[in-house]
């Protein structure tokens, strides 16, 4: 059987998964900033860097998203309408509001207006949740793409965004020298991160198993990851470098105590989740 089809294009390039990565990272950082300020106050020293980074990362992501448009200068067209059936339209408004809340929260935290910051921070939590999940829903909305069209997609993206945020916070606190002061409590962060990575890998495994039990499209979608064009990225970067190696560091009592190894693990996890986003977006288009 030979097939000649002259037309098939890959419309979305690396900019979209990078935006997904940055958008998720920003939502995760916001969540962590609120959690460390009000619930896990042991880590309060880490809250401020997270809160400051969050809007900056989001701004970079939104900038990338705008640049990816065929007509970046026509982006205002998105802001003069609301299309209730379009996840991207919801996302436009959601991100705009979240960005303002997010930046305001960081500002209040820096100024030390705690009472006001708490109100704004709590108000931002549902926005951060929606910001982290909507990108997954955006893909899940497309019923013609078996790899994307699954209810797991928003949750996969949500867990991914918390993972990247936590990994970045760990990395930053090591770089800024805040890790030593926290002593044992700091390694608890690494342990939490490790369990989140386990959850993420489990979700990916479930996703692939369900796809392999699906129709022709679903099986084809799973095989693109397992042995197709993106199998190297999937097995080597996402699974081995992004999960197996960091987990072997973070779950080992001795290795996880070394800050150098801990930072390597965090950096690898960041790369692994970026690979996950990239693979999902690119492989889904095949």
């Amino acid at each position: 059987m030979t097939s000649y089809d002259i037309f098939h294009n890959i419309a979305l390039n690396w900019m979209i998964p990078t935006y997904f990565f940055l958008g998720g990272l920003s939502a995760g950082l916001f969540f962590i900033a609120v959690a460390f300020t009000y619930w896990k106050t042991d880590y309060k020293t880490l809250a401020q860097p997270a809160a400051i980074l969050s809007p900056l990362v989001l701004a970079a992501g939104m900038g990338l998203l705008t640049m990816d448009l065929g007509h970046p200068l026509k982006f205002w067209r998105l802001m003069v309408t609301f299309q209730p059936s379009s996840a991207a339209s919801w996302g436009t408004w959601l991100l705009s509001i979240f960005f303002m809340v997010n930046a305001y929260f960081a500002y209040l935290l820096i100024k030390g207006e705690d009472a006001k910051a708490k109100r704004i921070g709590y108000a931002g939590l549902p926005l951060a949740f929606c910001g982290a999940t909507y990108t997954g829903f955006l893909l899940a909305q497309m019923q013609g793409r078996a790899l994307w069209h699954t209810a797991l997609m928003p949750w996969l993206f949500l867990v991914g965004s918390v993972i990247t945020a936590l990994a970045l916070v760990i990395l930053i606190s090591i770089v800024l020298g805040k890790a030593e002061a926290l002593k044992d409590k700091f390694f608890l962060l690494g342990r939490t991160l490790a369990w989140l990575v386990v959850l993420e890998v489990a979700m990916i495994a479930i996703e692939i198993l369900v796809l392999l039990n699906g129709g022709t499209d679903a099986i084809a979608g799973a095989k693109v990851l397992l042995k197709g064009n993106y199998s190297f990225l999937f097995w080597v970067v996402e699974i081995f470098l992004g999960a197996v190696v960091p987990l072997s560091i973070l779950f080992n009592r001795d290795r996880s105590r070394k800050l150098s190894l801990q930072s390597i693990a965090a950096a690898l996890i960041l790369i692994g989740i970026f690979a996950m986003r990239f693979i999902v977006v690119m492989a889904g288009q095949i």
């Binding site: 037309f7 026509k74 909305q141 013609g144 288009q285």
Partner: peptide
């Protein structure tokens, strides 16, 4: 605006940028 989402949403590959 050229966001290309419709292109990936089309199950028939009928669209292009």
């Amino acid at each position: 605006v050229g966001c290309k989402l419709c292109i990936v949403a089309c199950p028939y590959d009928a669209r292009f940028s």
